[in-house]
């Protein structure tokens, strides 16, 4: 029998202290312990990107990180991107440009786009496609996803008050 460990993780600005089994994956911690089910589990093999969240300011695949590795860290999930009831410019872009069909890949797409635009506020189409290469859309809606990120890029450059959420 293994020893549980106490971890402290700040998720979307709120600090949580929890006893977890060391083998618990971060995505299961977010979904099952904190009930933040916006982060999805797709392939579960670090290829599809449905589980992307920000950990300490970097996009990561939360199916391939242990919850204990996030101890002391800050996590931002899709739920924390915009204040309650509002939408982040990237979410608005995906809405306006029909950047989703079934929506399963969308939280991961948006979080990957968040890192992309944070590092490169005005990416070219090639840079967007490369930035999202770790995210798979099985509806194959890539054209509109690219348009959504371009739209978000414009929104974020014109918006005087781009929300910068806690945890990042």
């Amino acid at each position: 029998m293994t020893t549980k460990r106490s971890i402290t993780v700040t998720v979307n600005g709120q600090q949580h202290q929890t006893e977890v089994e060391p083998r618990m994956l971060l995505v299961h911690y977010l979904r099952e312990v904190l009930d933040l089910t916006g982060t999805h589990i797709g392939c579960n093999t670090s290829q599809c990107g449905a589980c992307v969240v920000m950990l300490n300011g970097e996009a990561i695949k939360s199916c391939t990180v242990l919850a204990v590795q996030a101890d002391g860290g800050e996590v931002l999930t899709i739920e924390g991107l915009a204040p309650e009831g509002g939408l982040h410019p990237i979410q608005e872009g995906f809405w306006e440009k029909h950047g989703l069909q079934c929506g399963f890949c969308t939280p991961g797409m948006i979080m990957a786009s968040y890192q992309l635009l944070k590092n490169n506020p005005h990416p070219t189409e090639t840079e967007i496609r490369r930035g999202l290469e770790g995210n798979i859309c099985r509806c194959t809606g890539y054209q509109n996803i690219v348009k959504a990120v371009q739209d978000a890029s414009e929104r974020m450059s014109t918006s005087a008050e781009t929300p910068v959420p806690a945890g990042d």
């Binding site: 670090s46 990107g49 992307v52 970097e58 996009a59 990561i60 695949k61 391939t64 990180v65 990957a112 890192q115 992309l116 930035g131 290469e133 770790g134 995210n135």
Partner: peptide
């Protein structure tokens, strides 16, 4: 190698 998220870790 992999993709951006993999290269971050």
């Amino acid at each position: 190698v992999g993709d951006q998220q993999v290269r971050n870790r």
